[in-house]
Amino acid sequence: MDFAYILEALPDLMTGLKTTLIVSFLAIFLSCLIGLLGAVLRTSGVKPLQYAVTAYVEFIRGTPYLVQIFFIFYGLPSLGMRFSIFWSGVIALTAWASAFQIENFRAGLAAVGRGMYDASASLGLKRWQHSVFVILPLATRAALPSAMNTIVATVKNSAYLQAIGLVELTFVAVDRIAYDFRAIEMFASICVIYLLCVFTISGLGYVVERRLSRPFGGR
C-alpha cells in the first residue's frame, strides 16, 4: 500500500467528503422531518392520508434504491421536473431515508400508550399540548435507536449517488482509480473515512440516547 499516494489524494478525497456530508446532512434533516410528519399522518385515522403514506413507504421499500435514483435523475425530467445532480441526489437520498424514518417514528408513536392520553385529557390539556409536551418527547425516545440506524444508513447510501455523477467521496475514489489504478489505496481510504463518519454519528446517537433514557432509569 502506497501511503504517499493516499496523502497526495487526500485533498481530493476531502472535497468529495464535503459533498457527502452536505448531501447526507440535508437528507438526514429532511427525512427526519418527513418521517415524523408521515408517521403522524399514518396514524391520524384519516384513511386517504394513511393509504397515501403506506403506499409511499411500500414503494420505496419494494424497489431498488439505485432504480429510485435513476428514476429521479433520468425519469423525472421527461415529466418536466429537472433538478441538478446535487438536488437530484438530495431528493433521492431523502426519499429513500424518509420511508424508513416514517416506519421508525410510527413505532415510536405506537410505544406511547393510551394511558398518557388519558392523563393529559383528564388534566384538561389540549390535543396539541399533549402532542408537543408528551407524545413528541416520548415517541422520539422510543424511535431513537432505529432512527439512528437509518441515519447511519443514509450516510453510507450517499455513495450510490456517484452513479448519477455526484462528486462525492466514492465518486472521487472511483474517478482517481480510473486514472491511476490505485484501487486498494483508494477503497481502503474511503472505507476508513466512512467508518470514521459512522462512528462519530453512532457515538453522538449513543450520548443522546443515554441522556434521554436517564429518567427511565436507563443505562
Binding site: 398518557m116 392523563a119 416520548l138 427511565f216
Partner: peptide, 8 residues
C-alpha cells in the same frame, strides 16, 4: 397505572 409522564 398512575399514568405519570415518565420523561418529566
Amino acid at each position: 397505572n398512575f399514568n405519570l409522564y415518565p420523561h418529566l
